[in-house]
Design a protein around this nucleic acid. Structure first.
Length: 372
RNA sequence: CGGCAGGUGGCACAGCGGCGACUGCAGGCGGCUGUAACCCGCUCACACAGAAACACGUAGGUUCGAGUCCUACCCUGCCGA
Protein backbone atom coordinates (compact mmCIF):
# COMPACT_ATOMS: atom_id res chain seq x y z
CA UNK A 1 0.00 0.00 0.00
CA UNK A 2 2.66 2.54 1.00
CA UNK A 3 4.87 1.62 -1.90
CA UNK A 4 5.73 5.27 -2.42
CA UNK A 5 8.06 5.40 0.54
CA UNK A 6 9.92 2.95 2.73
CA UNK A 7 11.34 3.81 6.12
CA UNK A 8 13.95 1.59 7.74
CA UNK A 9 14.94 2.14 11.35
CA UNK A 10 18.61 1.22 11.31
CA UNK A 11 19.80 1.97 14.80
CA UNK A 12 18.56 3.44 18.05
CA UNK A 13 20.79 5.43 20.38
CA UNK A 14 21.18 3.69 23.71
CA UNK A 15 20.86 6.75 25.92
CA UNK A 16 18.44 9.00 24.04
CA UNK A 17 15.57 8.60 21.61
CA UNK A 18 17.82 9.57 18.71
CA UNK A 19 17.55 7.20 15.80
CA UNK A 20 19.41 6.48 12.61
CA UNK A 21 17.22 5.61 9.67
CA UNK A 22 16.85 5.43 5.93
CA UNK A 23 14.01 6.58 3.70
CA UNK A 24 13.67 5.22 0.19
CA UNK A 25 11.68 7.27 -2.30
CA UNK A 26 11.12 7.06 -6.06
CA UNK A 27 13.95 9.53 -6.54
CA UNK A 28 16.44 7.99 -4.20
CA UNK A 29 17.50 7.25 -0.68
CA UNK A 30 17.61 9.66 2.25
CA UNK A 31 19.77 8.88 5.24
CA UNK A 32 18.27 10.22 8.44
CA UNK A 33 18.40 12.32 10.54
CA UNK A 34 18.42 14.76 7.65
CA UNK A 35 18.34 18.50 7.16
CA UNK A 36 16.35 19.52 4.09
CA UNK A 37 17.14 22.85 2.37
CA UNK A 38 14.18 24.95 1.32
CA UNK A 39 13.62 25.88 -2.31
CA UNK A 40 10.24 27.54 -2.12
CA UNK A 41 9.87 28.68 -5.72
CA UNK A 42 11.44 25.63 -7.30
CA UNK A 43 14.92 26.88 -6.57
CA UNK A 44 17.13 27.02 -3.52
CA UNK A 45 17.81 30.73 -3.62
CA UNK A 46 21.24 31.71 -4.98
CA UNK A 47 22.13 28.10 -5.76
CA UNK A 48 22.31 25.86 -8.80
CA UNK A 49 20.92 22.38 -8.14
CA UNK A 50 24.29 20.76 -8.73
CA UNK A 51 25.82 22.99 -6.07
CA UNK A 52 23.03 22.18 -3.66
CA UNK A 53 23.79 18.54 -4.25
CA UNK A 54 27.49 19.10 -3.64
CA UNK A 55 26.74 20.39 -0.15
CA UNK A 56 25.40 16.96 0.66
CA UNK A 57 21.70 17.77 0.44
CA UNK A 58 19.62 14.64 -0.07
CA UNK A 59 16.21 16.20 -0.48
CA UNK A 60 14.85 19.70 -0.87
CA UNK A 61 11.52 21.41 -0.28
CA UNK A 62 9.30 23.33 -2.63
CA UNK A 63 6.08 25.13 -1.92
CA UNK A 64 2.54 24.50 -3.12
CA UNK A 65 1.21 27.99 -2.47
CA UNK A 66 4.02 29.75 -4.31
CA UNK A 67 4.10 27.43 -7.30
CA UNK A 68 0.32 27.41 -7.49
CA UNK A 69 0.31 31.19 -7.87
CA UNK A 70 3.33 31.25 -10.16
CA UNK A 71 3.90 29.70 -12.63
CA UNK A 72 0.86 27.49 -11.96
CA UNK A 73 1.00 23.76 -11.33
CA UNK A 74 -0.37 22.97 -14.79
CA UNK A 75 2.76 24.43 -16.31
CA UNK A 76 4.99 22.40 -14.04
CA UNK A 77 3.00 19.30 -14.93
CA UNK A 78 3.34 20.03 -18.64
CA UNK A 79 7.07 20.56 -18.12
CA UNK A 80 7.25 16.99 -16.96
CA UNK A 81 6.96 17.53 -13.24
CA UNK A 82 8.93 19.54 -10.73
CA UNK A 83 12.08 17.39 -10.77
CA UNK A 84 12.49 17.88 -14.46
CA UNK A 85 11.30 21.49 -14.46
CA UNK A 86 13.96 22.55 -11.95
CA UNK A 87 16.57 19.95 -12.84
CA UNK A 88 16.75 18.33 -9.41
CA UNK A 89 16.65 14.57 -9.63
CA UNK A 90 16.82 13.70 -5.98
CA UNK A 91 13.79 13.59 -3.71
CA UNK A 92 11.55 16.62 -3.30
CA UNK A 93 9.15 17.36 -0.49
CA UNK A 94 6.40 19.88 -1.11
CA UNK A 95 4.80 21.84 1.63
CA UNK A 96 1.06 22.11 1.28
CA UNK A 97 0.53 25.82 1.64
CA UNK A 98 -0.46 25.31 5.24
CA UNK A 99 2.38 27.46 6.47
CA UNK A 100 1.16 30.35 4.35
CA UNK A 101 -2.12 30.13 6.23
CA UNK A 102 0.04 31.24 9.14
CA UNK A 103 2.69 33.47 7.57
CA UNK A 104 0.22 35.30 5.34
CA UNK A 105 -2.55 35.08 7.90
CA UNK A 106 -3.60 38.69 7.53
CA UNK A 107 -4.49 38.10 3.88
CA UNK A 108 -6.48 34.93 4.47
CA UNK A 109 -9.94 33.84 5.41
CA UNK A 110 -10.16 30.36 6.85
CA UNK A 111 -13.31 28.29 6.54
CA UNK A 112 -14.13 24.62 6.80
CA UNK A 113 -13.88 24.40 3.04
CA UNK A 114 -10.37 25.81 2.93
CA UNK A 115 -8.54 29.11 2.86
CA UNK A 116 -9.30 32.08 0.66
CA UNK A 117 -6.07 33.88 -0.14
CA UNK A 118 -5.26 37.25 -1.52
CA UNK A 119 -2.21 36.64 -3.64
CA UNK A 120 0.82 38.38 -2.17
CA UNK A 121 1.93 38.95 -5.76
CA UNK A 122 -0.98 40.82 -7.28
CA UNK A 123 -3.79 40.70 -4.74
CA UNK A 124 -5.92 38.35 -6.84
CA UNK A 125 -8.25 36.06 -4.92
CA UNK A 126 -7.62 32.31 -4.73
CA UNK A 127 -8.83 29.30 -2.81
CA UNK A 128 -6.59 26.65 -1.37
CA UNK A 129 -8.31 23.63 0.08
CA UNK A 130 -7.21 20.10 0.94
CA UNK A 131 -8.38 18.98 -2.49
CA UNK A 132 -6.68 21.85 -4.31
CA UNK A 133 -3.44 21.37 -2.40
CA UNK A 134 -3.41 17.68 -3.33
CA UNK A 135 -4.14 18.49 -6.95
CA UNK A 136 -1.28 20.95 -7.09
CA UNK A 137 1.12 18.60 -5.34
CA UNK A 138 0.09 15.75 -7.64
CA UNK A 139 0.88 18.03 -10.57
CA UNK A 140 4.24 18.89 -9.06
CA UNK A 141 5.04 15.23 -8.59
CA UNK A 142 6.95 15.57 -5.34
CA UNK A 143 8.13 12.44 -3.55
CA UNK A 144 6.66 13.59 -0.27
CA UNK A 145 3.48 15.65 -0.11
CA UNK A 146 2.36 17.42 3.02
CA UNK A 147 -1.21 17.50 4.20
CA UNK A 148 -2.98 20.83 4.00
CA UNK A 149 -3.15 21.98 7.60
CA UNK A 150 -3.70 25.09 9.60
CA UNK A 151 -0.56 26.20 11.36
CA UNK A 152 -2.10 28.22 14.16
CA UNK A 153 -0.32 31.19 15.73
CA UNK A 154 1.51 30.37 18.97
CA UNK A 155 -0.50 32.91 20.95
CA UNK A 156 -3.90 31.55 19.90
CA UNK A 157 -6.35 30.54 22.60
CA UNK A 158 -6.80 26.94 23.62
CA UNK A 159 -10.28 27.02 22.20
CA UNK A 160 -8.96 28.22 18.85
CA UNK A 161 -6.12 25.69 18.80
CA UNK A 162 -8.52 22.89 19.61
CA UNK A 163 -10.97 23.63 16.82
CA UNK A 164 -8.10 24.34 14.45
CA UNK A 165 -6.52 21.00 15.26
CA UNK A 166 -9.82 19.21 14.73
CA UNK A 167 -10.28 20.91 11.40
CA UNK A 168 -6.76 19.96 10.36
CA UNK A 169 -7.69 16.35 11.08
CA UNK A 170 -10.83 16.60 8.96
CA UNK A 171 -8.77 18.24 6.24
CA UNK A 172 -6.28 15.39 6.42
CA UNK A 173 -9.03 12.87 5.66
CA UNK A 174 -10.02 14.95 2.66
CA UNK A 175 -6.36 15.04 1.57
CA UNK A 176 -6.17 11.26 1.71
CA UNK A 177 -9.35 10.99 -0.34
CA UNK A 178 -8.20 13.52 -2.92
CA UNK A 179 -4.67 12.18 -3.36
CA UNK A 180 -4.49 10.71 -6.85
CA UNK A 181 -1.03 9.22 -6.89
CA UNK A 182 -0.36 7.36 -3.63
CA UNK A 183 1.87 4.82 -5.33
CA UNK A 184 4.46 7.39 -6.35
CA UNK A 185 3.95 10.19 -3.85
CA UNK A 186 3.90 9.72 -0.11
CA UNK A 187 1.43 11.86 1.82
CA UNK A 188 2.51 12.90 5.31
CA UNK A 189 0.01 13.90 7.98
CA UNK A 190 0.72 16.84 10.27
CA UNK A 191 0.16 16.87 14.00
CA UNK A 192 -1.13 20.13 15.44
CA UNK A 193 -2.44 21.07 18.86
CA UNK A 194 -0.25 23.96 19.88
CA UNK A 195 1.40 23.63 23.26
CA UNK A 196 -1.35 21.55 24.83
CA UNK A 197 -0.37 17.98 25.43
CA UNK A 198 -3.90 16.56 25.38
CA UNK A 199 -4.60 18.27 22.06
CA UNK A 200 -1.38 16.90 20.62
CA UNK A 201 -2.42 13.44 21.81
CA UNK A 202 -5.83 13.83 20.21
CA UNK A 203 -4.25 14.98 16.99
CA UNK A 204 -1.72 12.16 16.96
CA UNK A 205 -4.22 9.45 17.58
CA UNK A 206 -6.51 10.73 14.85
CA UNK A 207 -3.86 11.11 12.18
CA UNK A 208 -1.94 7.93 12.92
CA UNK A 209 -5.17 5.99 12.53
CA UNK A 210 -4.93 6.78 8.83
CA UNK A 211 -1.70 4.80 8.53
CA UNK A 212 0.16 7.29 6.40
CA UNK A 213 3.77 6.79 5.23
CA UNK A 214 5.10 9.52 7.50
CA UNK A 215 4.13 12.18 10.00
CA UNK A 216 5.14 15.71 10.82
CA UNK A 217 4.95 17.78 13.94
CA UNK A 218 3.71 21.20 12.94
CA UNK A 219 2.92 24.37 14.81
CA UNK A 220 6.15 24.55 16.78
CA UNK A 221 9.13 26.77 16.15
CA UNK A 222 6.74 29.53 15.21
CA UNK A 223 8.04 32.17 17.59
CA UNK A 224 7.43 30.55 20.98
CA UNK A 225 10.10 30.42 23.71
CA UNK A 226 12.56 27.58 23.36
CA UNK A 227 11.28 25.88 26.54
CA UNK A 228 7.86 25.50 24.97
CA UNK A 229 9.39 24.05 21.84
CA UNK A 230 11.39 21.51 23.84
CA UNK A 231 8.33 20.91 25.97
CA UNK A 232 6.41 19.60 22.98
CA UNK A 233 9.38 17.52 21.85
CA UNK A 234 9.42 15.77 25.22
CA UNK A 235 6.32 13.82 24.29
CA UNK A 236 5.14 14.55 20.73
CA UNK A 237 7.48 12.28 18.72
CA UNK A 238 6.53 9.37 20.96
CA UNK A 239 2.93 9.80 19.88
CA UNK A 240 3.93 8.89 16.33
CA UNK A 241 4.64 5.38 15.01
CA UNK A 242 8.20 4.16 15.43
CA UNK A 243 8.24 2.62 11.98
CA UNK A 244 7.49 5.84 10.12
CA UNK A 245 9.62 8.91 9.54
CA UNK A 246 9.02 11.85 11.85
CA UNK A 247 9.45 15.36 10.62
CA UNK A 248 9.59 18.59 12.59
CA UNK A 249 8.73 21.39 10.25
CA UNK A 250 10.65 24.63 10.22
CA UNK A 251 13.74 24.18 12.37
CA UNK A 252 17.25 24.98 11.29
CA UNK A 253 19.33 26.31 14.17
CA UNK A 254 21.74 23.70 15.53
CA UNK A 255 20.28 23.68 19.03
CA UNK A 256 16.75 23.10 17.75
CA UNK A 257 18.05 20.32 15.53
CA UNK A 258 19.92 18.60 18.36
CA UNK A 259 16.83 18.79 20.57
CA UNK A 260 14.62 17.33 17.87
CA UNK A 261 16.98 14.48 17.03
CA UNK A 262 17.49 13.69 20.69
CA UNK A 263 13.74 13.21 20.99
CA UNK A 264 13.42 10.92 18.01
CA UNK A 265 12.92 13.19 15.03
CA UNK A 266 14.28 12.20 11.61
CA UNK A 267 13.66 15.11 9.29
CA UNK A 268 13.73 18.89 9.50
CA UNK A 269 13.83 21.83 7.16
CA UNK A 270 14.33 25.55 7.51
CA UNK A 271 14.96 28.72 5.53
CA UNK A 272 17.45 29.76 8.19
CA UNK A 273 20.70 28.76 6.46
CA UNK A 274 19.75 30.20 3.09
CA UNK A 275 18.10 33.33 4.41
CA UNK A 276 20.77 34.35 6.91
CA UNK A 277 23.38 33.69 4.22
CA UNK A 278 21.73 36.30 2.03
CA UNK A 279 21.73 38.58 5.06
CA UNK A 280 25.45 38.15 5.62
CA UNK A 281 25.57 35.54 8.38
CA UNK A 282 27.36 32.20 8.37
CA UNK A 283 27.04 29.27 10.72
CA UNK A 284 30.53 28.06 11.54
CA UNK A 285 32.02 25.43 13.79
CA UNK A 286 32.80 28.21 16.28
CA UNK A 287 29.42 29.91 16.15
CA UNK A 288 27.73 32.45 13.98
CA UNK A 289 29.86 34.82 11.94
CA UNK A 290 28.32 38.07 10.77
CA UNK A 291 30.49 38.72 7.76
CA UNK A 292 29.35 42.34 7.67
CA UNK A 293 31.28 43.14 10.84
CA UNK A 294 34.12 45.62 10.48
CA UNK A 295 36.45 43.28 12.35
CA UNK A 296 36.62 41.00 9.30
CA UNK A 297 37.81 43.75 6.98
CA UNK A 298 41.38 42.48 7.11
CA UNK A 299 40.70 38.89 8.15
CA UNK A 300 42.33 36.86 5.41
CA UNK A 301 41.58 33.47 6.93
CA UNK A 302 38.77 31.19 5.81
CA UNK A 303 35.17 31.64 6.92
CA UNK A 304 35.34 28.38 8.85
CA UNK A 305 38.74 26.67 9.07
CA UNK A 306 37.04 23.34 9.72
CA UNK A 307 34.74 23.47 6.72
CA UNK A 308 35.38 21.75 3.42
CA UNK A 309 32.95 23.76 1.30
CA UNK A 310 33.88 25.65 -1.83
CA UNK A 311 33.72 29.05 -0.13
CA UNK A 312 35.94 28.00 2.76
CA UNK A 313 38.47 26.29 0.54
CA UNK A 314 38.93 29.25 -1.78
CA UNK A 315 38.06 32.56 -0.18
CA UNK A 316 38.85 34.71 2.84
CA UNK A 317 36.54 36.42 5.27
CA UNK A 318 37.87 39.74 4.01
CA UNK A 319 36.84 38.84 0.47
CA UNK A 320 33.43 37.54 1.50
CA UNK A 321 32.87 40.73 3.49
CA UNK A 322 33.91 42.81 0.53
CA UNK A 323 31.52 40.95 -1.77
CA UNK A 324 28.67 41.36 0.66
CA UNK A 325 29.27 45.04 1.30
CA UNK A 326 29.53 45.59 -2.43
CA UNK A 327 26.15 43.94 -2.92
CA UNK A 328 27.55 41.23 -5.12
CA UNK A 329 25.37 38.17 -5.78
CA UNK A 330 28.45 36.02 -5.38
CA UNK A 331 28.39 36.65 -1.63
CA UNK A 332 24.88 35.18 -1.45
CA UNK A 333 26.00 32.18 -3.42
CA UNK A 334 29.10 31.50 -1.36
CA UNK A 335 27.49 32.06 2.03
CA UNK A 336 24.45 29.97 1.09
CA UNK A 337 26.64 27.14 -0.12
CA UNK A 338 28.60 27.29 3.09
CA UNK A 339 25.57 27.30 5.37
CA UNK A 340 23.98 24.39 3.52
CA UNK A 341 27.22 22.47 3.76
CA UNK A 342 27.38 23.29 7.45
CA UNK A 343 23.98 21.78 8.16
CA UNK A 344 24.60 18.79 5.91
CA UNK A 345 27.85 18.19 7.71
CA UNK A 346 26.08 18.56 11.03
CA UNK A 347 23.54 15.97 9.89
CA UNK A 348 26.34 13.63 8.83
CA UNK A 349 28.07 14.05 12.17
CA UNK A 350 24.82 13.39 13.99
CA UNK A 351 24.12 10.23 11.98
CA UNK A 352 27.59 8.88 12.65
CA UNK A 353 27.40 9.75 16.33
CA UNK A 354 24.17 7.79 16.67
CA UNK A 355 25.71 4.77 14.98
CA UNK A 356 28.62 4.99 17.40
CA UNK A 357 26.51 5.71 20.47
CA UNK A 358 28.15 9.07 20.97
CA UNK A 359 25.24 11.37 20.19
CA UNK A 360 25.29 13.08 23.57
CA UNK A 361 29.04 13.54 23.38
CA UNK A 362 28.71 15.13 19.98
CA UNK A 363 25.98 17.41 21.25
CA UNK A 364 28.14 18.52 24.16
CA UNK A 365 31.20 19.10 21.98
CA UNK A 366 29.18 21.01 19.46
CA UNK A 367 27.49 23.24 22.01
CA UNK A 368 30.73 24.19 23.71
CA UNK A 369 32.29 25.19 20.41
CA UNK A 370 29.27 26.78 18.76
CA UNK A 371 27.55 28.40 21.70
CA UNK A 372 30.47 28.59 24.08
C1' C B 1 35.12 91.05 -15.65
C1' G B 2 29.54 90.54 -15.94
C1' G B 3 24.92 87.60 -15.42
C1' C B 4 22.37 83.46 -13.32
C1' A B 5 22.03 79.34 -9.83
C1' G B 6 23.85 77.34 -5.54
C1' G B 7 26.78 76.51 -0.73
C1' U B 8 22.67 72.03 5.14
C1' G B 9 25.94 65.48 8.91
C1' G B 10 30.92 61.14 4.67
C1' C B 11 27.72 61.76 -0.04
C1' A B 12 22.94 63.30 -2.12
C1' C B 13 18.84 66.02 -1.04
C1' A B 14 14.39 68.52 2.03
C1' G B 15 13.13 72.60 4.87
C1' C B 16 12.30 79.07 2.88
C1' G B 17 10.64 83.25 9.97
C1' G B 18 9.63 79.04 15.65
C1' C B 19 15.00 73.68 14.10
C1' G B 20 18.25 71.25 19.59
C1' A B 21 16.83 70.41 11.40
C1' C B 22 13.41 65.55 7.02
C1' U B 23 14.67 61.60 3.96
C1' G B 24 17.83 58.35 1.11
C1' C B 25 22.63 56.30 0.51
C1' A B 26 27.17 55.21 2.86
C1' G B 27 29.03 53.72 7.95
C1' G B 28 28.24 50.75 12.87
C1' C B 29 25.38 46.81 15.30
C1' G B 30 21.49 43.32 15.67
C1' G B 31 17.44 40.09 14.03
C1' C B 32 15.72 36.38 10.79
C1' U B 33 12.81 29.19 12.11
C1' G B 34 7.41 24.34 6.86
C1' U B 35 10.62 32.10 2.58
C1' A B 36 5.68 38.39 0.61
C1' A B 37 12.81 38.48 3.06
C1' C B 38 19.64 40.99 -1.59
C1' C B 39 14.60 41.89 4.05
C1' C B 40 13.58 44.17 8.81
C1' G B 41 15.06 46.87 13.26
C1' C B 42 18.33 49.98 16.03
C1' U B 43 22.28 53.37 15.65
C1' C B 44 25.14 57.31 13.19
C1' A B 45 28.30 64.77 18.40
C1' C B 46 27.58 65.43 23.59
C1' A B 47 24.32 66.16 27.05
C1' C B 48 19.86 61.35 28.59
C1' A B 49 16.21 68.42 26.96
C1' G B 50 15.79 73.87 30.77
C1' A B 51 20.54 79.06 30.46
C1' A B 52 22.20 75.66 26.68
C1' A B 53 23.70 72.84 22.31
C1' C B 54 24.67 73.09 17.40
C1' A B 55 25.42 69.25 9.89
C1' C B 56 22.67 75.02 7.86
C1' G B 57 30.00 78.81 3.72
C1' U B 58 31.97 83.56 6.61
C1' A B 59 30.89 88.27 8.90
C1' G B 60 27.46 91.74 10.02
C1' G B 61 22.23 93.34 10.08
C1' U B 62 16.55 93.12 10.46
C1' U B 63 13.40 90.39 14.10
C1' C B 64 10.58 88.41 20.30
C1' G B 65 12.80 84.63 17.27
C1' A B 66 16.96 83.40 11.10
C1' G B 67 19.16 77.47 7.89
C1' U B 68 14.99 80.34 6.30
C1' C B 69 14.82 87.83 5.10
C1' C B 70 18.79 91.95 3.97
C1' U B 71 24.11 93.47 3.00
C1' A B 72 29.13 92.35 2.08
C1' C B 73 32.66 88.85 1.38
C1' C B 74 34.53 83.73 0.27
C1' C B 75 33.78 79.40 -2.53
C1' U B 76 31.26 76.09 -6.55
C1' G B 77 28.66 75.39 -11.20
C1' C B 78 26.55 77.21 -15.77
C1' C B 79 26.18 81.22 -19.40
C1' G B 80 28.31 85.58 -21.69
C1' A B 81 32.47 88.85 -22.80
Amino acid sequence: MNTSLIYELLYKDKRTKARRGRITTPHGVIETPVFMPVGTQATVKAMKPEDVEKTGAQIILANTYHLFLRPGSDIVREAGGLHRFMNWNKPILTDSGGFQVFSLGHMNKITEEGVRFSSHIDGSRHMLSPEKSMEVQNDLGSDIMMAFDECAPPNATRKYIESSQEMTTRWLKRCVAAHKNPDRQALFGIMQGGFFRDLREKSASAITALDLPGYAIGGISVGEPKEEYVGVLEYAPDLLPENKPRYVMGIGTPDYIFEAVEHGVDMFDCVEPTRIARHGVAMTSHGRVNIKNAKYQRDFGPLDPECDCYACRNYSRAYLRHLFKAGETMSHMLLTEHNLRFLSKLSEDIRRSIEEDRFLELKEEFYSKYYG
